[in-house]
């Protein structure tokens, strides 16, 4: 493989990863360029979450390569990855229930200098006025949607160059989903790359530049998000080959 083009922020090549004896990813290859919004789709159990965890250092792996800004991610901790600008917002809006919104955000900037940290928290909150109003309430008292916004805001405190989000729409009302996705679109225009794992395919396609579909631990589809007939190809990827003929017939 030639030296990756400079605009490729994240390159993953032949990545294998799993839990104990169970290998979930059987050689995943993908890349994300700076400032790009990429949607990662796929049925349950395809390995989307596993891929994000492997890239961000939450799940150790040995086979394959993953480079961020041309630095190998192998063996890197989530802390080091976050310092490098690769931030992972995990699934299930797991904010700290017993800490206030403000403290949740301050914790995201734990190793920043104090003044910088405070400034970044204010900055992150500008994207989410809903939770800015609840700064001093406990994380646990927020609604699911607000917690998800808080989780995204935690990611923003780091001023990431690549923000990876795992199903930010899960459990949210359609209005809130649109709010979160709008913030992501806005982030992209300001130059932040986004890797979005989503179940809501159509909503994801609406904001994404490109799309990867993962099935059974492999990339089975890669396409431009606005390509013709993409939904059809996704159905194929989800339901297997013969399903679509029946759906069409």
């Amino acid at each position: 493989m030639p030296i990756s083009a400079p605009e490729k922020l994240l390159t993953v090549d032949g990545l294998h990863a799993g839990y104990g004896k169970v290998e979930v990813l059987h050689g995943v290859t993908l890349h994300i360029a700076a400032g790009e919004l990429v949607a990662l789709l796929g049925p349950n159990g395809a390995g989307k979450t596993t891929l994000l965890r492997a890239v961000s250092g939450l799940l150790p792996w040995t086979v394959g390569t993953a480079r961020f800004d041309d630095v190998s991610l192998c063996g890197m901790s989530p802390r080091e990855a976050a310092r490098a600008g690769l931030v992972h917002v995990i699934e299930g809006h797991r904010v700290f229930n017993h800490s206030s919104v403000n403290d949740n955000l301050l914790l995201a900037g734990f190793d920043l200098p104090r003044r910088e940290r405070l400034a970044r928290v204010d900055e992150a909150l500008t994207s989410f006025p809903e939770i800015a109003a609840k700064r001093h309430e406990l994380g646990g008292s927020l609604s699911g949607g607000q917690q998800q916004m808080l989780a995204v805001a935690q990611g923003l405190v780091r001023r990431p160059r690549l923000l990876m989000l795992d199903e930010p729409s899960a459990g949210l009302s359609p209005v809130l989903v649109d709010r979160v996705l709008a913030v992501l679109a806005q982030l992209r225009t300001s130059g932040t790359a986004v890797l979005l794992v989503e179940q809501l395919v159509e909503k994801a396609l609406a904001v994404a530049d490109r799309v990867y579909a993962l099935a059974q631990g492999r990339v089975v589809l890669t396409a431009d998000a606005h390509e013709q007939g993409l939904t059809h190809r996704l159905e194929q990827a989800y339901f297997g080959q013969d399903a679509t003929t029946l759906i069409d017939g």
């Binding site: 700290f96 017993h98 800490s99 995201a108």
Partner: peptide
Amino acid sequence: RAFLAVAEDNFAARALGLP
């Protein structure tokens, strides 16, 4: 707060980049 965060949800704390 960081101690409490690790105590409440170790995984989320790690993902957030807490030491």
